[in-house]
Design a protein around this nucleic acid. Sequence first.
DNA 1: CTGTGTGCAAACACTTTGCAGGTGT
DNA 2: ACACCTGCAAAGTGTTTGCACACAG
Lengths: 139, 139
Amino acid sequence: MNTQTLLKEFNLRNTLPRTCILDEFTKSSYALSHNDLENNLGNKFDRVTIYRTLKTFLENGILHKVLDDDGIVKYAICATHDCSHEQHSHSHVHFKCNFCGQTNCLNDIAIPNISLPKGYKFHETNVLINGICKDCNEG
Amino acid sequence: MNTQTLLKEFNLRNTLPRTCILDEFTKSSYALSHNDLENNLGNKFDRVTIYRTLKTFLENGILHKVLDDDGIVKYAICATHDCSHEQHSHSHVHFKCNFCGQTNCLNDIAIPNISLPKGYKFHETNVLINGICKDCNEG
DNA sequence: CTGTGTGCAAACACTTTGCAGGTGT
DNA sequence: ACACCTGCAAAGTGTTTGCACACAG
């Protein structure tokens, strides 16, 4: 999916910061924080613009937040394309490497069904697995 | 377990802020953020003291961090008592209510085994389930 | 041309650090 | 008595808001 068409699809204006930021996400195999983006993009854009772009993408369901175990908010592209502002569906597994710190989405792995106690209403499940990733393990 | 003895067990001094903060956690059925503590305790203690106390408790394995999907760091008591600085073992399920915002630990629910792709090394799993909790569902 | 997006400045919120004095053991 | 803990001040970091100008459609 082209970034240009993606933006158009969501009725968002095609601007340089937006396409560059989207490109970062499509290029990256792991979830990116605001800080990652700032580093990757040099000083090309204002820090505030990045915040606002992330927010816009979140609201439109282009990105989703990725859980992190030490409070750093990270984002990743919604791979399944049925996300919108109202309805996100990205119940999938995230793996965080304790060595390199990278978090990536293991889209192929299904989340097992967990039965909740009586009275609880299920909406979605997020799983964060910690460990050592493939690259760090081999290296 | 008494808070006094708990502190002694970890070679921590028995001070007012510590006992009060520990009490908050034993009283509460859900995970508490720094902000929650500040509110619950009035202005009894300095904000910095709360930060430092939380840090101390974390390092000693009295508390553990609870994942949250919007970046607010929350803490809960380590129910299983085999946590220490080096080795935490609290792979359990957290449930966050989208209505009241409270997150609690579902200690009874076991985490299903998820098999990782080849090359990945497992350490621990954190599960955060979103939905509507019992109280909000009935209310 | 219109309304949205960007950049800059500043405010705001959250967390950590340094230091002097107080307190538990 | 001593080491540790607390409170205050201040610095550091992360995020949001207001406003004027620029630019996409």
